[in-house]
Structures are given as structure tokens and as C-alpha cells.
Amino acid sequence: MTRRGLGHQMVEEVRMTLEQGERLLLTFVIPVLGLVLFSTTRIVITNTASRVDFFAPSALALAVMSTAMVNLAVATGFERSWRVLKRLGATPLSPGALLSAKAGAVLAVEIAQFAVLSAIAAGLGWRPHDGVAAALAAIVLATVGFAGVGFLLAGTLRAEATLAVANGLYVLLLGISGMMFPLERLGGFSPVARLLPATALTDALHGAFGPGGVPVEAWAVLAAWAVVAPALAAWRFRFAGE
């Protein structure tokens, strides 16, 4: 695979995310607002000593899910329906290079999200345990899994259906992943919820930045999604067609 065009493509992928209002809303504004709102009010009761200790890792998990799954799926789905992916297939930019550019763009946006959210959280009094290495590992694993789900949606459904399903998953996962409130409150449903990638990532980040460390089952779930979802996407993805 030649890498010609990969760098320029990656810069454009990042730029397209940041210059469009609805994509910026999804990737930056909502996680930041959520962090500030829930950390400074008593809307939700948490199980941590300080409210921001709960919501800072949650906001990071939400940011990763928004970028690597929802934004990637919707953008790719529309590029497919506009025949952009098909058109790129007739240029020397290989599918591997396009995929790498998209992955690189996701990571670049996540780094910016991490910087913005942790700075704001620090301002709100967040004092995490030193779990950055474990947190970054969990984020990379989760990104691979989320991106697999995103590409699976974008590569098999119509763009409008991708938009609907990705947004539906976003709301659903936001609700049952332990981002908004401690998972124990789901009661008997929580073991099922723990099998979801969003739940595993939220668990991992709460663990990494909290006193407990990352639970083994969170690593296992993240790793499983990181293998299965991209494999399914590679198997089912169609560059052209509805």
C-alpha cells in the first residue's frame, strides 16, 4: 500500500469533522456541556467522593463513542451514498490508506477531546489517580471496536438508516453504559449492559482514573469488540450501493 495522499486525506477528515456544526456539537459541545452540567449540579447522584471524579471519565467515554462510532458511521455512510467512496476507489488512494486516514483522524480528534475535557475537568477540581496509561489503552481498544460498529453500519445500511441507527445507539448506550449514573442502578440488567463496548469503556475509565483500577472483564469485553466488530465490518462493508 502506498501512503501517497494519506496525510492530506487525514487532515481533510479532521477538518470535515471540525468545520461542520452538527459534528462539532456531537464530538465536543455535548461531552463538555455534560461534564460541566452534571459535575456542578446535583441532577444525578454518584458513587464517588467528588462529582467530577465520576463525570470526567464518563465525558471522556462519551467523547470516544461519539467520535469513533457515531461521527465515523454517519460521515462514512453519507460519503458512501454520495458515491464519494466509490469515486475514491478509482483513484490511487487505496482502501487501506483511506481507512488509515479515517482512523488517524479519529485518533487526532480524540486527542483534542482528551485535552479539552481533562483541562475543563481539572478546572472543576478533578484529581484523577495516575491511570493515564491504562486509560489510553482502553480508549484505543474501544476506538477500534466502535469504529468497527461504525463501519459496519455505514457499509451496509442506507445513509439515512445509518444516521438513525447510530443516533439511536448513542442515546441507548448513553443511558445504559454507566456514563450518566452508576451501573449498579440498572439492577439485574447490569450484567448484560456490561457486555456492551460503551459500558466496558466507561468502567475501564472510571477504574483507571479511580482507586480501583480497570476491571479484568472490561478489558475482555473491549478486546472482544475490537476483534469482532472490525472483522464483521471488513466482511460486510460495501463501498458502493445503497
Partner: peptide
Amino acid sequence: TTRIGVVLQEGGLYPQ
């Protein structure tokens, strides 16, 4: 792909 040029029947452009 370095030696051919293609105009599809429709689309193929990033709208933004």
C-alpha cells in the same frame, strides 16, 4: 488508477 480518469454517472464529490 494512476493512468485512468473517471466521471461517475452521479455524485463522487464531497459536498462540503
